[in-house]
Design a protein around this nucleic acid. Sequence first.
DNA 1: CTCCTTTTTCGACCATCGGTCGATTTTATA
DNA 2: TATAAAATCGACCGATGGTCGAAAAAGGAG
Lengths: 206, 206
Amino acid sequence: MKKGEKRKQELLKIAYKMFLTKGYENTSVDEIIEEAGIAKGTYYYYFESKEQMLEEVIEMMIGQEAEVARQVLNSGMDVVQKILGIMAAFRPTQEETTIENALHQQENALMHNKVKKRLMAAAIPLLAEAAEEGNRQGIFCCDHVPERVKLLLIVGNELFDEENFTESDVAVFIDMAEKLLGAKAGSMDYIKGLIGQTRCKNGEKE
Amino acid sequence: MKKGEKRKQELLKIAYKMFLTKGYENTSVDEIIEEAGIAKGTYYYYFESKEQMLEEVIEMMIGQEAEVARQVLNSGMDVVQKILGIMAAFRPTQEETTIENALHQQENALMHNKVKKRLMAAAIPLLAEAAEEGNRQGIFCCDHVPERVKLLLIVGNELFDEENFTESDVAVFIDMAEKLLGAKAGSMDYIKGLIGQTRCKNGEKE
DNA sequence: CTCCTTTTTCGACCATCGGTCGATTTTATA
DNA sequence: TATAAAATCGACCGATGGTCGAAAAAGGAG
C-alpha cells in the first residue's frame, strides 16, 4: 500500500483541483473521498479537519509559486523584468480564474482570504528585495521599502481580482506605484501589460 | 400582535448584535430564533435565507453610518474636519471590535467581505465629494478623485482592520495619501489620530 | 513462519445546520 | 359573524463536517 506521505500528497492534489474548480465551501469532504476512493476515516487519519487541509493545500500552492519567484529574483534579469516575473509567478493561473471560481468568489471568501494572506507573506520580501535593487540602481528612490511594497500588493490584489475596475483605476494605480516608490513618472507603465491579461471592464465604453 | 415590519426590525436588531459579537458563521438560525422567542417558520416568513438576512443587517448598519456621514458632508466644517468626520462615521464601533469578533475574523470572512464591499460603495462618493472640495480650495491637487479615494479606502481597510500594522505602515500610508491626492507633505498627519484609536502593534517594541 | 506491535483503512453513526411545509392561530375586513 | 389574509408554529428533511471502535495491512523480532 501507499506509504502514508504519498497518499497525503495525493489527497492534497485532488483537493487542490476541486477547491479551484468548485471552490472550497462548495466541495464537501464526501466528494473528496469519493474522488480519492477512500473512506472517511482514512481522510481524517491524514487531516485534522477540512479547514486544516485547506491550509496545507494553500501552503503547497504558494510554496511552489514562491520557488519560481525566488529563481527569478536570483537570476540575471534587470530589475523591471524581475518585478514582472515575480508578480507573474504569484498570478492566479488560468485554472484559478475559471468562470466557476470567479462566480462563486463571494461564497468562497474564506479560501480567498487565506490565499491572499499567505500570498502576501510570501511575495512581500521577494518584491521588496527587487525594489531595493531598483533603489540602488536609481530606478526607485524611497525608504520603508517593504511597507511600500505591501501597500502596492494590497491595492493590486483588492483592485484587480474583481472585474470591477476601469482604465482610470489602472492609471491611478500606476501613478500611485511610481509616486510611492519614487520612480520617474510614466516609468512603470509596463505594469499595464500584467493587468491587461485579465478581462477588464472598460471604463468608458461598457 | 406585532404588525410585521416591527417584528422584522426586531429580528434584524437581534441578528445584528449576535453577528457582531459571535460572527455570522458562528451564529445559527436556531440561536437567533431562540433569542427572539419565535419558531423557525416565523423566521423564514420574514427572511428568504440566513444570507439574505445578513444582507439586510449590513444594509441597516451602513445605511445609518452613511446618514451620519452625509450630514457631516453637508455641514459647515472645513474640509479636513469633514474628511475626518466621514471616516469616523464609517469606523467600526467599539462593539464591532470586540475581542470575540476580532479573533474569529478569519472564519467570518463572508460577512467581513460583504461589509467591506457595501461600505466602500457608500463611502467613496461622500469622501470624493469632500476631496473635490479640497481640490477647489487648493488643499489637494489631483484628477480622478473617486479612483484615488477608492485606493485610499482599500488600503485603509485592508491595512488597519487587522492588528498587524506598525508605525511605519501608518507613516507610509499617510505619505501615500498625500502624494496620491497632491497634498503638501506632512499636511495629512492628522490621519494618525484616527488610526491611533485602535490598538496598534508598535513596530519597534512589540 | 509466528507472534506482536504499529500503521492504515474502513464505514456506520452522530450532532448540527440551514431550510421546507402543511397545519393552525391571530388579525383585518366586509 | 363569516371569510380572507397575515402571521406563527414545530416536526421534519437532506447535507455536512466530524467521531470511533473495529478490522485489515504492514513491519519487524525471535
